[in-house]
Each structure stands twice: as structure tokens, then as C-alpha cells.
Write a protein that binds this DNA or RNA. Structure first.
Length: 862
DNA sequence: GCGGATCAC
DNA sequence: TATGGTGATCCGC
């Protein structure tokens, strides 16, 4: 698909063109550009949306004005100094220029629209767009001639092109097609980086090396016929592409360059093929060059999906991305891996083409007379004085044609959010209901990924399109509907109160959660559990502490939870019970009957009526060590802490708790497999989820434990745990204990599967490390990995799950809020916004080498 | 840590 | 009638 950026801009350019606010060229064919602008303006002018656009525009202009003023203050001496510094840095990064990688950016052409056209032949020669009357995701090339673009509201598109057919998106279908494409991409780079359903980066350097020795058969493909037979393996029989099928692409892309309209079409077959009797007539042989590889990729994509892709080949991601746009649609472009080739390409390249330079940046730079990369380079000293270090480093990289040469693995998620646009809602009560509904959805999403965060942000957009965000960070992680809503509600309340007596007139509300603890945090959290428990004034008793923390941390569980055979039953200490106003004791008990915790501080409800027992109920508490899982009875907190400390610090802790660290099911697996390497079940689950990019349910989890046992298969890990809690000691660890053991072969499989989104799993023979938590030998010599494992065991297995369950147990959802009437599920875009390694990568200040750099300047641009 | 902005898709 | 949703990052407080 074309870059949204471009689509967006063209639309907004059109929007603003007649206002004299923007004079970019759009280059329309089908409909006169003036007409397009006129129609858009007529549909837009006077709207609240438009007024807000103007307002934002003014703000940008103000920014520019400030910048220009700042510029006038710069002395020539400052500029000279800046020049020196910048050029030193330029020399440094130039020195590190790496041309040894071949990066490919593959981009499906008008993806959603193309899928719809493929599947509905009637649409083939009509202008179509995918989306709704409110917003379009993409349009086909026919519609684009009328100025119909993505990120344009459908109702305006309809005015531009009355015959436009707007098709509702079908994301499941797009996902499926995307998977087909990804299967092909994986053949060339198992670690390829998918940016969305229709876009991906590949590093084919390794493939190219291997390919050099490949025989022709391995590079030949038969041309298939109209049926969509699965057949994209080299050398497999397929028939000729039928006329009707071949007609699809040209109709989609009328202006395709003829030589690229059908990659791999017989007209492109290598000459060697004709001379080789081994290769049948209706086949194509691809060469061994990068260009040939990419042709092959695009050929296979089209054969398999009947859809076309464009691609760019370059020594880094930044250039590859720009290249893929060059011969779009259905084309490709390569920048050869030489500095000269790169510089030639960069020379006149408008900076706006670069990923990361958006509308605003473009405008600001334009105010400085910068439009092309050459100009960007020429103004580098000035830029270093006007922009942040992060920014000017980024600019400098662009202007030298530098970018990421490796595809960074996906990092951990940083936030998760839900937001929704609706017709004006101005009644506070409805706003709260809506907020709760969003919190509920968010909590569900969080649960799917097993995440908890500390910061809750509420986003509000009023009917004038003015956006506000309000955030609150709490001291410990939250994840349930009630916890999130408790925070979000207050944020919302503050805003409602602030405008009183006027109502908030909202058109959008969103809830986001962030500040997920990283591994370090978790470790710290775990290790400081002792201090955690001691928090409060002057070493309070455990009971006092718990009472304080009940709302947030939910470290408390009514005793019924594990009354069956728990050690805890025997020794209970007195404590008080308090609960949040929203909690419902009935559900608490019901829930608790179904759960058991390895580590719990148990409170027994002594009053019949929880609602009235605030702060006065006696509860009894028992501690179980989170490390060795042994009940510590009603010992003092200090003694308990010491014990935990000792367990955490003692590497031979496993010696003390070999027997009971694993639940029955897992033990069985371990025995059966008799292995050396183990993963936390949940770790593996997370891992596989990342790979498949799917939601993982607890059912999946059980599959991992014992795939052959159908009786277990159908059960969730929770039910498994429940079962165990009944059959065994309830003090056994729950999820933490579900450690999957894998044969080395399995580990190998994992490593291979990792291809999609690699984890850094290294399995090396030799030195055995024993996890002090799960007692299982870790067959890795990588300390980091080992530590990660221990962290997972500690955190996910014990504290996290304890809290999770406690929380779920105590605050059972209140009665459902009214339906907001906005239940239409929107596709969650897999928005990976990482600019392949630029913006953030160079944010650290560099030590400048004290070499004289001045004379080297000329090497960059002449 | 917060809030507004920018950017990508 | 009607201008999206998700996620990341940066900057100035």
C-alpha cells in the first residue's frame, strides 16, 4: 500500500491549497486538480474539523516564526563552531557507513482495495475505496484519479467521485492474505520485519550469499493458471497464467511500467532458460542478483495471491523504503551498494519522501529553504543550532543517505490503548459509562497479553476536535477493569468538574495504559517484596500494611480460596479486612473457590457482611515463600522476610524445594521428556504469540504442555490449576509452576520458528545453570538468558499471578454499563511505528573526536 | 512524570 | 450526517 503519509498529505494539501496555506503539488490525472480542491473545500469549509485544522496550522506557523526568530539571533561565530562540531559528527557516521547489507522493502499495492477487487470481479474496473463514509483506509488507482485517497472521509470521496464504491473493510481476509505473503518473505529472510499487513523489510544479504551457488532448478518457477492452487515452490508444476488473471494487474495499475507489469512473465525469462532443456517452457528462472531475488519475490507474491507488490532494494532501510515508492505500483527500484550510487539518489530527493519527515517537519525545513536532501546537508550547521540533537543527528543521517542496516527485533510493547469516536456525548453519566466500557476492553486486551501497567491515560476529544490527555501514574501495576476505571474515572471527573457547569461535549474518548514494568523493574519488584511488605509507617504489622494496600495491590485473599488442603488453614494470623467500595463479596468467594495461590497472604472473613465490615473484620494471615513455595506459617514478617531473602540469594535454593515446585501435569511432562532446557510456559506462550501475532488464550497454553493429551487440550490453564488445587496441595505454584520442558529438538524448532520475530535464544551445550525458582536445569551458558528465565519464574510465576488472581477475585466487575452503541469492532492496526532506527538511535551524545574535520566536508556533496 | 505534538500505517 | 485507531517518540515543562 502506498504510504499513508502521502495519501494524507495529498488530501490535506488539497484541503489547504486554496487557502494559500500549502502549495504542494499533487499531480492528479482523472479529475482536474482545481476541481478536486474546490470540492474538498466546499465539503470542508466551515466544519469544526476544518476550523481545528486552521487552528493547528496557525500553531505550526507560530512555531516556524519562533524558529526564524531564533535563527536571526545566531551569530556567525556560533555558526562556525556548529559547523565544526557537525562535521566531526558527519565524519564519524560517514566512517561507519555500511554498504554490505541488502535491505528490501516490500509494499503491497493498494492492498485492501486490491484484495477486494480480486475477490469481487465486478469491482475490477470501478473506482473503489475500503473504509466507511467517515474514513477511508485505501483506494484503488482508478479512484485516486478523482482525488480519492486514504485518510479521506468517505462522504467527501463520494463528492469527488460519485460512482465510488466504498467497501467495508474485511481485516480477517487481509490478515490471511498478509500471512500468505509473509510465508514467501520468510524464505528470503526468516527474520524479516513486518511493519503492517502490507509492508515489510527484509535483509536478504544472507540469502544472496547462499543463492550464488543455487542451481537453476532452485530458482525456477512455473507459471500458474487461473486457479489459486497453492504452488509457489520452485520447480513445481503450475500452469500458465490465464488471460483473465493477467488482466487483473494492468487494470489495477494502468500506468505500470510495461517491463514490470508482470514480474516473471515469460517475456522476462532468462536467456539461459531457453537453452536449458531441463527447464520447461512455461517457467521462469530468476537470477542470483538482488534485483532478481526481488523480482522473484514479487512474482511469487502475485502468483500466490494475484496481488502485486512494489519493492525497494538498498543498503539500508531508510533508502529501501524510499525506493519501494519509486516505481510503485507493481515495480521495483534498486540503489546499488556504492556510496556514489547512494549520493546520486539522495541528491535531489525531497526530504518529505523520507520516513519520519512528516508534514510539519517538512514545512519547518521548507521555511529554512530546505526541500531536498542536498539542501538538508548544506544547512546542517544551522539545523544543529535550531533543532534538538536527536533531530539534527537524524537529519544528518538522512542527508548522507545513512540508515539502519539491520532489522531490529520488535521490542517490548510500551503502551496499549482503546479509543472510540462517536456522536456527541455530553452527559456525565454516559461519559463515565463509556469510560468504563473502554476500560473493560482495555483490561481484556491487557489480559490477552498478560500485561499490567502503572500509568493510565484518558484521552478526550471534544466536538471541536480539540484533544486533551490526562494521565495518572500509580505506585503498583494495574490491569483489571475496576482498577483501570478507578483511575480513569478520577481523571475524567477532574475534567468534567473543571468545566462545570458546562458539560464536556465529547466526540472521542480513549484509555491508554503504559509504564509496563520491564525485566529490571520486575526483578526489583520481586527482590523488594520484603521492603514492599514492610512499607507503611514505622514497621507496621502485616495486617496494617495489607489493610492499606488492599485497593491497589490486592495482596489479600479471603481464606476460602484455598481452604481445602492449604497449609494456611492451619496457621492463621489475625488481620483486618478492608475493601473497595466497588468490591462484591459474593463474587470474591465464588472466585476464590476456583483459585489457589502459591504465595498468599490470606485473610479470613470473619464477618458475614463484608459491606459493613470495613476495617474491623479479623482476618488471618499466612505467608508462603514465593521462592521455595513453602508455607512459612504465622511467623513474624521479619522472619518471613529473612526467609525469602535467603531463598532469593541462595543459589542452592533448589535443593530445598525440589519436590514441590512443579504442578503435577508439568512434572509429568518433565519426567517424560527428561530434558535439560526449560521455558516458562508463559514465556513460551508469549513468545509464540509474538511470532504468530495472535492472541493467546490459556487454552493454547495447555496445548503447549501436553499436546497429545486431548483431555488436557481443551482445558485452560486456569481450569488446570483449579483441578490441581483440588487434587493437590493448594499451596503449589500455579502458573509459575507450569514449566514446559523441551527437548533440544524442540528448542531448535523454537529457534527456527523464531524467524518471524526472533528472540535471542541461544542454546549452547555445556555448563548447566539451575533455576532457583523452578529448580530446573537451564541448558544455557548465557547468563542473561538464564537471568531472564529466573525473572520470568519469579515474576510471572509468583507475584504477578498472585496479584492478578487476587485482583480478579476481589473486584469482580460491577453490573455492566449501558451499551454505548459503539460496539462495531475496529481493526486494531499492528502499528509498529518504529522508524527503522533513526530517531532514537542517535539520541545519545557522541564523544567528538578531536580530529580536524574541516577539509573533509567536500567529500559529501560537491 | 505529564501533556501536547508529530509521525507511521 | 459524516474527518479513525493504535502505538511510538520527542520536547518542554
Amino acid at each position: 500500500m502506498d504510504t499513508t503519509k502521502e495519501k494524507n498529505d495529498n488530501y490535506k494539501d488539497n484541503l489547504l491549497l486554496r487557502m494559500g496555506l500549502n502549495d504542494n503539488k499533487a499531480g492528479m490525472e482523472g479529475l482536474d486538480k482545481e476541481k478536486i480542491n474546490k470540492i474538498i473545500m466546499e465539503a470542508t469549509k466551515g466544519s469544526r474539523f476544518y476550523e481545528n485544522e486552521l487552528k493547528k496550522e496557525k500553531q505550526v506557523n507560530q512555531r516556524i516564526e519562533n524558529m526564524m526568530h531564533q535563527k536571526t539571533q545566531i551569530t556567525s561565530q556560533q555558526l562556525r563552531n556548529a559547523q565544526l562540531q557537525v562535521d566531526r559528527f558527519a565524519m564519524e557516521i560517514e566512517h561507519r557507513r555500511d554498504l554490505n547489507n541488502t535491505i528490501v522493502h516490500v509494499d503491497m499495492d493498494a492492498f485492501y482495495a486490491a484484495v477486494e477487487m480480486r475477490d469481487t470481479p465486478e469491482l475490477k474496473d470501478k473506482p473503489i475505496a475500503v473504509g466507511s463514509m467517515s474514513m477511508l483506509s485505501t483506494s484503488n488507482y482508478h479512484a485516486r484519479r478523482f482525488g480519492v485517497r486514504a485518510a479521506m472521509p468517505g462522504f467527501i470521496a463520494k463528492r469527488l467521485c460519485p460512482h465510488l464504491i466504498i467497501v467495508a473493510p474485511n481485516f480477517d481476509k487481509y490478515r490471511a492474505v498478509s500471512e500468505e505473503v509473509k510465508e514467501i518473505l520468510a524464505d528470503y529472510d526468516p527474520n524479516f520485519m513486518a511493519m503492517s499487513l502490507d509492508e515489510a523489510y527484509l535483509n536478504i544479504t544472507k540469502h544472496l550469499q547462499e543463492r550464488q551457488n543455487w542451481p537453476e532448478e532452485k530458482r525456477s518457477y512455473f507459471i500458474k493458471t487461473g486457479n489459486l492452487a497453492e504452488n509457489d515452490e520452485p520447480g513445481k508444476e503450475v500452469n500458465k497464467l490465464s488471460e483473465s488473471d493477467r488482466s487483473i494487474s494492468p487494470l489495477l495499475f494502468e500506468d505500470s511500467p510495461p517491463d514490470l507489469q508482470s514480474p516473471g512473465h515469460p517475456c522476462q525469462v532468462n536467456s539461459e532458460e531457453q537453452n536449458n532443456p531441463q527447464i520447461p517452457q512455461n517457467s521462469v528462472v530468476f537470477g542470483t542478483s538482488a534485483e532478481e531475488v526481488v523480482k522473484e519475490i514479487r512474482f511469487r507474491i502475485e502468483q500466490k495471491t494475484t496481488l502485486t507488490a512494489s519493492a525497494g532494494i538498498a543498503p539500508n532501510t531508510m533508502l529501501a523504503k524510499v525506493c519501494s515508492d519509486k516505481n510503485k505500483p507493481n515495480g521495483q527500484y534498486q540503489i546499488l551498494p556504492s556510496r556514489q550510487a547512494v549520493m546520486d539518489f539522495i541528491k535531489d530527493l525531497p526530504i518529505r519522501k523520507v520516513s519520519g519527515i512528516g508534514k510539519v517537519t517538512e514545512k519547518m525545513l521548507k521555511a529554512l529553504g530546505i526541500i531536498t536532501c542536498t539542501e538538508l546537508y548544506q544547512q546542517r550547521a544551522l539545523l544543529s543550532l535550531l533543532f534538538s540533537e536527536t533531530s539534527w543527528h537524524y537529519f544528518l543521517h538522512i542527508s548522507l543517505g545513512l540508515g539502519s542496516t539491520h532489522l531490529a527485533r520488535d521490542g517490548e510493547r510500551k503502551s496499549m490503548s482503546v479509543e472510540r469516536t462517536f456522536n456527541e456525548i455530553n452527559k456525565a453519566e454516559e461519559q463515565y459509562d463509556l469510560c468504563q466500557e473502554l476500560c473493560r476492553e482495555l483490561a481484556q486486551d491487557l489480559q490477552k497479553e498478560g500485561l499490567k501497567g502503572r500509568t493510565v491515560t484518558v484521552k478526550l476529544k471534544n466536538v471541536n476536535f480539540e484533544v486533551k490527555t490526562r494521565a495518572s501514574t500509580v505506585s503498583s501495576v494495574v490491569s483489571t477493569t475496576e482498577e483501570i476505571f478507578a483511575i480513569a474515572k478520577e481523571l475524567l471527573r477532574t475534567e468534567i468538574d473543571a468545566d462545570f457547569p458546562y458539560p464536556l461535549r465529547l466526540r472521542l474518548m480513549g484509555v491508554r495504559i503504559s509504564s509496563f514494568p520491564n525485566e529490571e523493574d520486575k526483578k526489583h519488584q520481586q527482590r523488594s517484596i520484603i521492603g514492599f511488605l514492610q512499607a507503611g509507617n514505622q514497621a507496621p504489622s502485616a495486617t496494617e500494611y495489607i489493610e492499606e494496600r488492599t485497593d491497589k495491590d490486592q495482596f489479600v485473599k479471603p481464606l476460602k480460596t484455598s481452604h481445602k488442603k492449604s497449609f494456611f488453614d492451619k496457621k492463621q494470623s489475625e488481620t483486618k479486612w478492608s475493601h473497595q467500595d466497588t468490591s462484591k463479596c459474593e463474587t470474591v468467594d465464588k472466585q476464590n473457590l476456583q483459585t489457589s495461590q502459591p504465595f498468599q497472604i490470606i485473610k479470613k472473613k470473619t464477618s458475614e457482611n463484608l459491606e459493613t465490615s470495613e476495617s474491623s473484620n479479623s482476618c488471618q494471615m499466612i505467608f508462603t515463600c514465593p521462592v521455595c513455595f513453602r508455607e512459612q506459617g504465622s511467623i513474624s514478617l521479619e522472619a518471613f522476610n529473612k526467609h525469602v531473602d535467603a531463598c532469593l540469594d541462595c543459589p542452592s535454593v533448589s535443593e530445598n524445594c525440589k519436590v514441590s515446585t512443579c504442578s503435577q501435569a508439568t512434572s509429568a511432562v518433565n519426567q517424560k521428556e527428561n530434558t535439560h532446557h526449560s521455558f516458562s510456559l508463559w514465556e513460551k506462550q508469549d513468545y509464540e504469540a509474538r511470532q504468530k501475532n495472535i492472541e493467546v488464550t490459556s487454552e493454547d497454553c495447555v496445548d503447549l504442555v501436553e499436546p497429545k493429551d486431548s483431555s488436557l487440550k481443551a482445558r485452560s490453564i486456569d481450569s488446570l490449576r483449579r483441578k490441581h488445587s483440588k487434587e493437590e496441595h493448594s499451596s503449589l505454584p500455579s502458573k509459575s509452576s507450569c514449566t514446559v520442558s523441551l527437548e533440544n529438538a524442540d528448542v531448535g524448532l523454537l529457534s527456527r520458528q523464531e524467524s518471524l520475530q526472533p528472540l535471542s535464544f541461544k542454546v549452547t551445550a555445556g555448563q548447566a545453570l539451575v533455576c532457583p525458582v523452578c529448580s530446573l536445569e537451564q541448558k544455557t551458558s548465557d547468563l542473561t538468558l538464564f537471568n531472564e528465565h529466573v525473572d520470568v519464574c519469579l515474576n510471572k510465576g509468583i507475584i504477578q499471578e498472585l496479584r492478578n488472581d487476587s485482583v480478579n477475585t476481589i473486584n469482580e466487575p460491577e453490573e455492566s454499563s449501558k451499551s454505548t452503541g459503539m460496539s462495531n469492532k475496529v481493526q486494531k492496526t499492528v502499528a509498529k511505528t518504529k522508524r527503522p532506527g533513526l530517531m532514537t538511535k542517535y539520541s545519545t551524545s557522541k564523544k567528538i573526536k578531536p580530529n580536524n574535520p574541516r577539509h573533509t566536508l567536500d567529500i559529501f556533496f560537491k
